[in-house]
Design a binder for these strands. Structure first.
Lengths: 129, 129
DNA sequence: TGCTTATTGATAATCTTTCTCAATAAGAGT
DNA sequence: ACTCTTATTGAGAAAGATTATCAATAAGCA
């Protein structure tokens, strides 16, 4: 018996998808608690990390502060607001063509298994403040 | 009198350059303490953040764990080892041409002020273990 | 229905970074 | 060279995010 299906894991995965936009572990925790008031924060962290390890989610490499999770597993870029910390997607596939993993692998000797392209900027809302 | 030149700030900037390869704040702290045993960790953080704000250093957007600083301010990409956490440069300018900030700005409405391209992989050393 | 053990919940522990505030010292003015 | 103002520092507390610990719970096979 390698792994078990639990209500917690199912609801956490569901909420990650419903939240959609790059929630932190704490965002997911708060959402899950609406349906399962007794969840532990540790379970949320464990499950999110497991989803990433299994390839059913990714974590967005984004500066300081809390780590952000993403239910999307296809290649796409992100923009992060340096004022409010919000993270959003940028138009799909817009830059992925310019990124050549094989070339990077040759250049540094690493075995490349992924990459992240993150733009930093100021979101429309923060531009007005 | 807007700002002052202090020994601490000078040594911290020097050590950031000498360490060269993407040290964490704690790496810098340990290096600085060799020359200035009484330095406070708070001062190291303050000074590193100041250097970044002033544009004399950058911080590498790299996954979980401690933030990493870089005395280089020109555009270049990084590789991070998912096993040992090491961060290195990839060949200069290899991918920067593929990144069009104006296109990203139009796509998401943000005012883009920077970007980071980070490859994740396994470094040569960790491949053997 | 029982049994084994993967998973959970609660909390302590760890790690990184920021905040607080009295003490220190940089540098402009005299 | 000496004051005076206040930017900066050092030490430690505090905050925030994530992981570790461990007894209790429950998934799912026999």
């Amino acid at each position: 018996m390698a792994s078990r299906n639990t209500v917690q894991q199912r609801i956490i995965a569901e909420q990650l998808q419903q939240l959609g936009s790059h929630p932190t572990a704490d965002d997911v925790y708060r959402a899950v608690r609406q349906q399962l008031p007794s969840v532990s924060k540790a379970t949320v962290y464990r499950t999110l990390n497991k989803l990433v390890a299994v390839g059913e989610a990714t974590c967005v490499v984004a500066g300081t502060g809390a780590e952000r999770f993403d239910y999307r597993t296809d290649e796409h870029s992100h923009v992060m607001c340096i004022k409010c910390g919000k993270v959003e997607d940028v138009c799909d596939g817009m830059f992925e063509d310019g990124v050549d993993r094989d070339a990077a692998a040759k250049a540094c000797g690493y075995e490349i298994i992924g990459h992240d392209l993150v733009f930093e900027g100021i979101c429309p809302a923060c531009q007005q403040a």
